[in-house]
């Protein structure tokens, strides 16, 4: 089911652990979807000197977090801002379709950590990072079936393409 790269990162995850003195923290996901990720960044001279993660989730979610830390570490903030969920999935040699929406949140968590870093730097009062307990639309306004990746009709309780129930996703 998973590529060799995914399995490698799942079995030997890189950069695991909490970072107590992080300069920025990003959290995404919720247990309803099945995956939660926390990304910690340490910044020096606008370079991501260290990146760590904690993840609750499936094999794909752990592999996504692990490879993301490798991709981001050593990059300038500007470079790291170009990392997307799509480029993470590509670095993992692809993910199963049904994992693309729920487990592939690593770049979102990183971008959230970078925003948190800027907020702290500009002296903005840091809000408690909040996880949304709602279904999020990663493609913008449109809603895609999380099972088969075909655009879904939000009013229909069932995906017209694959027949899976969509109620719980909304």
């Amino acid at each position: 089911m998973y590529s060799n790269t995914v399995m490698d990162h799942f079995k030997n995850p890189r950069n695991v652990g909490e970072m107590k003195d992080a300069d920025g923290v990003g959290e995404v996901g919720n247990p309803i979807c099945g995956d939660m990720m926390t990304i910690y960044i340490k910044v020096k001279d606008e370079v991501l000197e260290d990146v760590k993660f904690l993840t609750f989730g499936c094999g794909a979610a752990i592999a996504v977090s692990s490879i993301l830390t490798e991709m981001a570490k050593g990059k300038t903030i500007q470079e790291a801002q170009h990392i997307t969920n799509k480029s993470v999935a590509e670095a993992l040699e692809g993910l199963p379709k049904n994992k693309l929406h729920c487990s592939n949140l690593g770049a979102d968590a990183l971008q959230s950590a970078i925003r948190d870093y800027f907020d702290r730097k500009s002296g903005k009062v840091r809000k408690e990072p909040k996880r949304k307990d709602e279904h999020e639309h990663h493609h913008g306004d449109r809603c895609y079936c999380p099972y088969c990746d075909v655009e879904a009709d939000e009013k229909s309780p069932v995906c017209v393409n694959c027949g899976q129930e969509l109620e719980a996703a909304h």
């Binding site: 247990p31 979807c33 099945g34 499936c58 049904n98």
Partner: peptide, 22 residues
């Protein structure tokens, strides 16, 4: 688990007996 192949939602059985999502 919802993440296991084929299903992306938490088990209705486990939710029915009072388990939380996590």
């Amino acid at each position: 688990s919802a993440c296991a192949a084929g299903a992306l939602q938490a088990s209705h059985v486990l939710l029915s007996i009072g388990r939380d999502f996590a």
